[in-house]
């Protein structure tokens, strides 16, 4: 016990630092699986990946770019601007932060509706219902209210819900591979589960 109590902490710390820096399984800088990331960086990356599984109707494909918008307070910060460098199916992404809904209906293929818009969510979704826009949020009950895709956090991981009926009304086709990863939900108004 005496040896344990009086050992040199400095030596222990150096030993641990050496183990951490030399062990491949503990090399924190090398593998994504070894790291944690800010929530909205992960969500921004997910939006790009999700878009690869969505097919917009021909009429909404005005121009080559895929326009991603945020309505309300932007929770992504620089991660949202970084989307501009990405491509989905050969189409470059463009981004825009919006303060009103009208411009969203005219321009956006993907619309992230911020939680700052929670109080008027029902009215926003009603106005967008038949527009070919992939509506995304991370607000409790969003998909049940008629939003298409809702991002949630469970056990430190992002999960997502999809309202298939809403996507059909909007004229979007969602690949079955994406639906397999999602929690499928229905409208509250329609009495779906």
């Amino acid at each position: 016990m005496g040896i344990l109590i009086r050992f040199s902490f400095r030596r222990l710390f150096i030993a641990i630092a050496l183990i951490v820096s030399t062990s491949p399984s503990l090399n924190v800088g090398s593998a994504w699986a070894a790291e944690t990331f800010p929530e909205y960086d992960v969500k921004a990356a997910l939006i790009v990946q999700v878009a690869k599984f969505i097919q917009w109707p021909q009429t909404s494909d005005s121009g080559r770019s895929l326009h991603v918008c945020v309505l309300g307070d932007d929770p992504f910060g620089p991660a949202f601007d970084a989307l501009r460098d990405k491509q989905v199916g050969g189409r470059p992404l463009t981004t825009e932060r919006l303060q009103n809904l009208q411009s969203a209906r005219d321009r956006c293929h993907i619309l992230f509706i911020s939680r700052s818009e929670k109080s008027r969510l029902t009215s926003i979704l009603a106005k967008l219902k038949t527009s070919p826009i992939l509506t995304i949020a991370d607000t409790q009950g969003f998909a049940h209210l008629g939003g298409i895709l809702n991002l949630e956090i469970e056990n430190d991981r992002v999960i997502f819900e999809i309202n298939v009926r809403s996507s059909e009304i909007a004229g979007l086709r969602i690949d079955a591979r994406l639906l397999e990863l999602a929690i499928i939900v229905g409208d509250e108004q329609a009495g779906d589960k």
Binding site: V42, A45, V50, D156, V158
Partner: peptide, 9 residues
């Protein structure tokens, strides 16, 4: 997408 869903925030 599977890898992103496996990342800890």
């Amino acid at each position: 997408i599977e890898e992103l869903l496996d990342i800890a925030v």
